[in-house]
Design a protein around this nucleic acid. Structure first.
Lengths: 100, 100
DNA sequence: TATTTGGGTAAAATTTTATTTACCCATTAT
DNA sequence: ATAATGGGTAAATAAAATTTTACCCAAATA
């Protein structure tokens, strides 16, 4: 299967879970730490990390890493990418004409 | 969970399978019977029927039913809906502002 | 010092999806 | 008459995704 189909499938799968849609909605306008996200969602740490991984992997969520020199720890902030539109007909036409 | 979120999830789940993307691509320009679809995909009948159900349920694929009076049988033809675009940012903003 | 908190991993358990198998019926072809 | 074809359902099985559990570490706090 082509790269582009795999990318599209990853995108659609990432969007196929209510919690992940909520995470994207939360991080629309300002970046949030996983702690802040978790407070709103009330889910376990491993579960949140797993959801976040899928969103970042699908290029829906951006991760900014900050290094706190004082405390020698890394802090991660998440923000939803902007202008997310999917032209489905275009994707399907590419699949049909074997462009991808 | 709201109706609209459930509808969106159904849409994304329907799009999360390579075979279903192929079916949509095939039925872009002309309607096809399940027989014609199956010939191209080489999958079992029950499996195709299951995929088609999900696509129709997600309102991605339209089904036209024809009744052949001579032979007393129904024939079904499938065609992908047109102008399928998903405004993800808009959906997420609705979720955020609890409009849905 | 013992415990809580933030952030994380690995693996087991659970749930959901996908796929196959075994059927059904009616029509057409051998 | 028998086999093949189109179209379908129900249930069992296989595979994939989700969620929990049990851990790890370092820093802050009671």
């Amino acid at each position: 299967m082509s790269e582009e189909i795999e990318r599209s499938l990853k995108l659609f799968k990432a969007l196929s879970h209510p919690t992940r849609l909520k995470i994207l909605a939360m991080c629309l306008d300002k970046e949030l730490s996983s702690k802040e996200i978790r407070r709103s969602l009330n889910i376990s740490k491993p579960l949140l990390i797993s959801h976040i991984k899928k969103l970042v992997d699908a290029e829906l969520l951006e991760c900014r890493v900050e290094f706190d020199r004082e405390k020698s720890i890394v802090r991660k902030y998440y923000k939803t990418k902007e202008n997310l539109t999917i032209d489905l007909t275009d994707l399907l036409r590419k699949i049909k004409t074997k462009q991808i």
